[in-house]
């Protein structure tokens, strides 16, 4: 990583993060994704609380609305590859690709943290990061959302029912059992971030 060796790298990271946050804040599709996810989570949590006051209503709601956080994460990445060629403007402004990847990850964590603050859990941040990793690898919103939904809504439940011992390593265990699934909720996005950064570094823009 040449970026970390440069003098002034922290200042550079801060300006890049600032720019990335500005990008996230001025894209209508991201505002919609955030707003709808938030509204759906609140409504479902209220309904869940009425139906079963004993269970954690937010966790119940998030079982469904985590898809919204996934979409949010995907869009933060794939906006760069939509028509207009923004990725080139991005790379011309911040040409050091690992530094750019770090800035993007930091900006997404900040945005997702603000978004999930009311839920009292960090789990949706993990889902958003997995979405962003898939978005960077696939460069296509539809493909990335489809892959992410398959992972969270089909592959994980199937894997859990066949091999209950695998729960420790599934990315969604942390939603219902934070103590048991925390490591996986960190490792999945981390592995995807490393893979996406490497592919971003070596592929042409």
């Amino acid at each position: 990583m040449t970026a970390t060796a440069r003098p002034g790298a922290p200042a550079e990271l801060i300006t890049s993060v600032h720019a990335e946050l500005h990008k996230l804040g001025t894209l209508p599709s991201l505002r919609w994704a955030a707003g709808l996810t938030w509204a759906a989570t609140v409504l479902l949590a209220l309904a869940a609380h009425r139906a079963a006051p004993a269970a954690d209503p937010v966790a119940t709601a998030l079982r469904w609305t985590q898809a919204g956080f996934l979409v949010f994460g995907v869009l933060t990445a794939t906006q760069e590859y939509e028509s207009g060629g923004q990725i080139r403007a991005t790379l011309l402004a911040v040409p050091r690709r690992f530094a750019l990847a770090a800035a993007k990850a930091t900006a997404l964590i900040v945005a997702a943290a603000v978004l999930t603050l009311p839920t009292g859990t960090a789990y949706p941040i993990s889902v958003a990061l997995v979405g962003a990793g898939l978005g960077w690898l696939l460069r296509n919103a539809l493909a990335a959302v489809a892959t992410g939904l398959t992972l969270y809504l089909i592959a994980c439940p199937v894997a859990l029912s066949r091999w209950p011992a695998a729960a420790n390593w599934l990315p969604d265990t942390a939603l219902l059992d934070p103590g048991r699934g925390a490591a996986a909720a960190v490792l999945w996005p981390l592995a995807l971030a490393v893979g996406a950064s490497l592919s971003f570094r070596w592929r042409h823009a």
């Binding site: 300006t15 890049s16 600032h18 720019a19 990335e20 500005h22 990008k23 001025t26 894209l27 209508p28 599709s29 906006q79 939509e82 028509s83 207009g84 060629g85 923004q86 080139r88 403007a89 991005t90 011309l92 402004a93 911040v94």
Partner: peptide
Amino acid sequence: VGALLDGSGAHRARTARAHLRWLAASN
């Protein structure tokens, strides 16, 4: 360096001003 390539480099849903603002912030 100022570079002009094919296309504007702006996301189609972003305003011209917002596009230039994030670029200014990045540098």
